[in-house]
């Protein structure tokens, strides 16, 4: 599904990632873990085109996406969430999800301004679909609220509803459980599982080891910008290099 080939990223003089190669299998839930500063978020930013890598290539389903702009990736089935939850704060919950359907609709400036029949039909479709995704994430009751007024946990759910609306093949989740309490984390795990069940490949960066070990079928460990290990949760838990890295970092 997703293949990284020798990704290196240098900021100024600092090497954030060094020749990282990895592969995410279609239909898997893959966890990317590692101590702080390991380069996990940088990796996501490179895959989603927010950073340009110093060298190396990124392939999405065998298509080279290394040079593609961020905005063209959603249409190819690649979306992401953010560590700090990037909502459209001034818009309603429903509108947030409707933006998620941007790539699923075509009307341009002219047909929107003149409300051409095709656009009215499309608008109806967008709203229907968006409501479905709100139901999927259990946010139906919040539809009319302003996104900024949502509690943090629901904000995370909304971000997921919005990414699901793009009907992706692959979702990158940047610390989906950060800032959530135990119950919310359990709900999040259930939701991720539900997303996976619908046939979507999930890659997540996460610090909550219980969650990672619980739901991931494959784990990649980064440390100091390099790939340290990869394997099943059990293999990773028993890998001496991983244990050393975590203990060494405190």
């Amino acid at each position: 599904m997703l293949r990284l080939d020798g990704i290196t990223k240098i900021f100024g003089g600092l090497t954030a990632l060094e020749a990282v190669s990895l592969e995410v299998k279609k239909g898997s839930i893959t966890g990317v873990i590692g101590p702080n500063g390991a380069g996990k978020t940088t990796l996501f930013n490179i895959v989603t085109g927010l950073y340009t890598q110093t060298s190396g290539e990124v392939y999405l389903a065998e298509k080279n996406i290394s040079r593609l702009a961020t905005e063209s990736l959603a249409a190819l089935g690649l979306v992401r969430t953010f560590q700090n939850v990037e909502l459209f704060g001034q818009m309603t919950v429903l509108e947030n999800v409707m933006v998620g359907l941007h790539t699923k609709s075509r009307s341009g400036v002219i047909s929107c301004a003149f409300k051409l029949p095709r656009q009215i039909k499309e608008e109806k479709y967008i709203k229907e679909k968006a409501l479905n995704w709100l139901e999927f994430t259990g946010l139906t009751a919040e539809a009319g609220n302003t996104a900024n007024n949502l509690p943090f946990g629901k904000g995370r759910l909304l971000e997921i509803a919005r990414t699901m609306a793009a009907e992706p093949q692959l979702i990158l989740m940047d610390e989906p459980a950060a800032g959530l309490n135990d119950m919310e984390t359990a709900q999040m795990a259930g939701l991720i599982y539900k997303i996976w069940e619908s046939g979507i490949t999930v890659v997540l960066v996460e610090h909550n080891m219980d969650l990672v070990m619980d739901i991931c079928d494959s784990i990649i460990v980064l440390n100091l910008g390099k790939k340290l290990a990869e394997g099943t949760p059990r293999e990773i838990q028993e890998n001496p290099a991983v244990i050393a890295a975590y203990l060494g970092e405190g």
Partner: peptide, 27 residues
Amino acid sequence: NLSQSRIGRALRAIADSEVAARVMGVN
């Protein structure tokens, strides 16, 4: 009309978070 369409929503999305809007496929 424009403001209440997908274009209007995309514009407001850009105003709120340009990065997130681009990730959702808004050019």
